[in-house]
């Protein structure tokens, strides 16, 4: 080590400090004190990290003139609010019929509450879950999804006292939440909206499904692809009428 050779101990030292240059563990300090080569390695690494830091410090632009003030929404003028309301109502009347908010206590209402409390599910679009884990969750519910369905998140959740498979599908139309309720055909079906969520609940052969879009309604084609991809196993079909 002192003579310039690189031992296993040196390799371990370098591996650890290269991951954590600030690591001041006693064993690392002790090795550094008696190995000139590794001490030099750490100094060079410090210079390298200084360069990384300098590179990451990109110029920060002046704050945008806020489209919406984050700290004082009440400062918007009444004229602005009135204009926005008129525009929103006009667009709403012109292009669509109102979609109801879910009734309190309905399954749709429970779905909305659940999604509001589990926002981290959407993080999976950046970090998709292993397909094997997804398959485990699907199997636990007696559910099959076409292998080509881009499922990035799957978890067993309790919604309205019922065990459901909570999935996030990240396809060409963006992220869509799919909740599968095997073995039960819900009496409620139809569309709902709540805040940025908009969805549809419908019974299908062997169970029920809720398909929910975030920030935008799910495109009909995307909904159709999801419905075509879902299949409940026979054991779920036994107790329900298709």
């Amino acid at each position: 080590m002192g003579g310039g050779g690189v031992s296993t101990e040196c390799l371990e030292f370098r591996r650890r400090v290269e991951a954590e240059p600030g690591n001041e563990a006693p064993d690392l300090a002790e090795h550094e004190a008696r190995c000139a080569s590794c001490a030099r390695f750490r100094r060079t690494l410090g210079q390298f990290d200084g360069l990384i830091r300098e590179a990451l410090l990109v110029d920060v632009p002046a704050p945008q003139a806020p489209r919406r003030s984050p700290v004082a929404p009440e400062r918007r003028t009444w004229w602005g609010i009135a204009a926005a309301l008129v525009l929103a109502v006009g667009i709403g009347l012109a292009f669509r019929l109102p979609v109801p908010e879910p009734r309190a206590g309905s399954f749709a209402g429970h779905v909305v509450t659940h999604l509001e409390h589990e926002p981290e599910a959407l993080d999976a679009v950046l970090r998709p879950m292993d397909r094997a884990r997804v398959e485990d969750v699907l199997a636990a519910h007696g559910v099959r999804m076409a292998a080509t369905t881009p499922i990035v998140y799957a978890r067993t959740c309790i919604v309205d006292g019922k065990r459901v498979a909570h999935l996030v599908v990240h396809g060409a139309s963006g992220a869509v939440t799919v909740m599968l309720l095997p073995g039960e055909q819900l009496s409620e079906s139809g569309t709902f909206e709540a805040g940025s969520l908009s969805g549809r609940i419908r019974p299908i052969t062997g169970g029920s499904v809720a398909i929910v879009g975030h920030d935008q309604p799910v495109e009909p084609a995307a909904e159709r692809r999801i419905l075509e991809a879902v299949g409940f196993d026979r054991r779920n079909r036994a107790g329900v009428a298709g």
Partner: peptide
């Protein structure tokens, strides 16, 4: 946007780094 060529090259290299490596580096170093 930096006078130092080394910093510019480093910035470009970090820009090209895959997200899974870039993000922890930003969180640790910056």
């Amino acid at each position: 946007a930096h006078d130092d060529l080394d910093v510019r090259e480093m910035r470009s290299a970090i820009f090209d780094l895959e997200a899974e490596y870039r993000e922890p580096l930003v969180l640790q170093v910056l």
